[in-house]
């Protein structure tokens, strides 16, 4: 599942999968700005068939955090 998430990050942010590590943070690269963050949320909602709480949308500030948040919605890593 982590690979699937990495692929979603890479495709949505238009970066290589190698760049998607636990340390990848929101606004740490030009590709992960506020606009692409909204696109990322929409893609995650769609791919995992969930509707994240607003607090989680705000909180999703890194790849590691994304795994933690998605776990709350039953996605297993």
């Amino acid at each position: 599942m982590e690979n699937k998430l990495r692929k979603i990050f890479a495709e949505t942010l238009n970066i290589s999968e190698e760049q998607v590590t636990d340390g990848l943070e929101y606004n740490s690269i030009p590709e992960w700005d506020s606009i692409s963050h909204m696109a990322l949320i929409a893609t995650l909602d769609d791919e995992f068939n969930i509707m994240m709480e607003t607090e989680d949308v705000i909180d999703l500030s890194s790849f590691a955090k994304a795994k933690e948040i998605l776990s709350k919605y039953g996605v297993q890593f």
Binding site: M38, A42, D45, M51
Partner: peptide, 10 residues
Amino acid sequence: MQYASRIMMR
């Protein structure tokens, strides 16, 4: 608008 736009973005 908030919730609708999240679905539309997909």
